[in-house]
Computed example of a mutant assay.
Amino acid sequence: MQPAESTPPWVALVPLKPLGAAKSRLDHPARRSLALAMALDTAAAVLDAGSDAVGALIVVTDDRAARDALTGLARARGLAERLLVTADEPRGGLNPAFAHAAALARVLYPGWGTAALSADLPALRPQQVRRALAAAPVAGHGVLADAAGTGTVLLSAAAGTDLHPRFGPGSFAAHRDSGAVDLTLLLTDQVPGLRRDVDTVADLAVARALGLGPATSSVLAAAPSPRSAA
């Protein structure tokens, strides 16, 4: 009897705006530092999900400080070989950035599926990444709504499938209309940190109640704000 072939891992794709422009709706004095810290906590959770679930992480950003910090994070964990930080971010927003990362993934990791994630998931946990990717369809696309139910925090494209990102206002409905399988009801409350992206101080307070990652916690401890601590 031949052993079953193992399922290829996923390539996670995460875009990050230049830190000076990131999180413009987050009314906090440490907004720039928080944007980087949330990206670091997101990347750490993705990388720590295990190489059988996430074989590689591609971060698309043209911010040098972010590139250096992310590279340092991966090296500290001994996972540098699984992280690619590219500075070749196309101008035009999230969708060109995701498309750029997906094109790289097709070349570097043929036969692997791709999973586009938000960069602002400070309460994300590795097991939530594993759970969501295990639920992603093996053909076509899967989509997971944010906590509000209108945005997208995860878009998966199975091996051999183009990503076709439609991020932006109403992105969850746009991805569903394009044929993506809705993973939201299936996962419901199993992945609260994955569904809690942070755009405002109210979002940050909810993420804090879920349990923030170490980088975001450190920034808030160094620069407390009553607005963020509510």
Score class of each variant (00 low, 15 high):
residue 129 V to P: 05
residue 156 S to P: 02
residue 197 D to M: 10
residue 195 R to G: 08
residue 180 A to H: 01
residue 128 Q to A: 14
residue 137 P to Y: 03
residue 157 A to D: 03
residue 171 S to V: 00
residue 145 A to Q: 04
residue 172 F to V: 07
residue 201 V to F: 09
residue 199 D to T: 10
residue 170 G to H: 13
residue 191 V to W: 02
residue 177 D to K: 09
residue 166 R to K: 10
residue 138 V to D: 11
residue 143 V to P: 02
residue 166 R to F: 05
residue 217 S to Q: 15
residue 208 R to H: 07
residue 133 L to G: 06
residue 137 P to Q: 02
residue 147 A to P: 06
residue 209 A to V: 10
residue 149 G to F: 10
residue 213 G to A: 03
residue 180 A to M: 09
residue 143 V to R: 01
residue 214 P to T: 14
residue 144 L to I: 03
residue 129 V to Y: 03
residue 190 Q to T: 14
residue 184 T to R: 11
residue 219 V to G: 07
residue 138 V to Q: 13
residue 203 D to R: 05
residue 167 F to A: 07
residue 136 A to M: 03
residue 133 L to S: 05
residue 146 D to F: 01
residue 158 A to D: 01
residue 144 L to K: 00
residue 166 R to A: 07
residue 174 A to H: 13
residue 175 H to R: 09
residue 217 S to W: 02
residue 144 L to Y: 00
residue 138 V to S: 15
residue 141 H to F: 03
residue 168 G to K: 11
residue 139 A to Q: 09
residue 213 G to H: 07
residue 141 H to N: 06
residue 198 V to L: 11
residue 144 L to P: 03
residue 216 T to K: 00
residue 209 A to K: 12
residue 172 F to N: 00
residue 154 L to V: 06
residue 131 R to V: 07
residue 170 G to M: 14
residue 173 A to R: 12
residue 139 A to C: 04
residue 147 A to I: 11
residue 162 D to I: 00
residue 206 V to S: 08
residue 142 G to E: 00
residue 169 P to I: 07
residue 176 R to P: 01
residue 190 Q to M: 08
residue 152 T to S: 12
residue 216 T to G: 04
residue 200 T to W: 12
residue 155 L to R: 10
residue 209 A to G: 12
residue 175 H to K: 04
residue 194 L to V: 04
residue 171 S to F: 00
residue 146 D to Y: 03
residue 213 G to P: 00
residue 218 S to K: 13
residue 168 G to Q: 14
residue 182 D to T: 05
residue 161 T to W: 12
residue 183 L to Y: 01
residue 150 T to F: 15
residue 211 G to N: 10
residue 198 V to N: 11
residue 195 R to E: 11
residue 202 A to V: 13
residue 160 G to H: 06
residue 202 A to Q: 15
residue 218 S to H: 12
residue 200 T to E: 10
residue 154 L to T: 04
residue 147 A to N: 08
residue 191 V to E: 00
residue 218 S to N: 13
residue 148 A to E: 14
residue 154 L to M: 11
residue 157 A to L: 05
residue 195 R to K: 14
residue 156 S to K: 06
residue 213 G to F: 02
residue 210 L to F: 13
residue 177 D to W: 05
residue 168 G to C: 12
residue 153 V to M: 03
residue 138 V to M: 11
residue 216 T to L: 09
residue 174 A to C: 09
residue 177 D to Q: 15
residue 141 H to K: 08
residue 160 G to T: 02
residue 192 P to Y: 07
residue 197 D to T: 11
residue 219 V to Y: 09
